[in-house]
Amino acid sequence: MKPRIIDFPKIQDPRGNLTFVQYPNQIPFKIQRTFWTYDVPGGGIRGGHAYFKQQEIIVALSGSFDVIITNADGSSEKFSLNRSYYGLYLPAKTWRHVENFSTNALSLHISSENFSKEDYIRDFEDFKNLLDER
Rank of each mutant, 00 (worst) to 15 (best):
K10F: 13
D13N: 14
D13G: 01
N17S: 14
N17A: 11
L18E: 04
T19F: 02
T19S: 15
Y23W: 14
P24G: 15
P24D: 04
N25P: 07
N25K: 12
Q26R: 07
Q26A: 09
F29K: 03
I31M: 12
Q32G: 10
T34F: 14
T34S: 06
T37H: 15
D39V: 05
D39F: 11
V40I: 12
P41C: 01
G42N: 12
G43W: 06
G44S: 02
G47T: 00
G47N: 04
G48M: 12
H49Q: 12
A50H: 09
Y51A: 15
F52E: 04
K53F: 10
Q54I: 01
Q55T: 04
E56Q: 15
E56M: 04
I58Y: 08
I58K: 06
A60W: 08
L61T: 07
G63V: 06
G63K: 09
S64C: 05
V67N: 04
V67I: 02
I68C: 09
I68D: 05
I69E: 13
I69G: 09
T70N: 08
T70P: 07
T70D: 08
E77K: 13
E77L: 11
K78R: 15
S80H: 03
S84E: 07
Y86P: 01
L88E: 00
A92T: 05
A92E: 09
T94F: 07
T94S: 07
T94C: 12
R96A: 01
R96P: 00
H97N: 14
H97F: 12
N100E: 05
F101E: 00
S102C: 03
T103C: 15
N104W: 13
L106D: 08
L108F: 11
S112A: 03
N114K: 13
D119N: 04
Y120A: 07
I121M: 03
D123I: 08
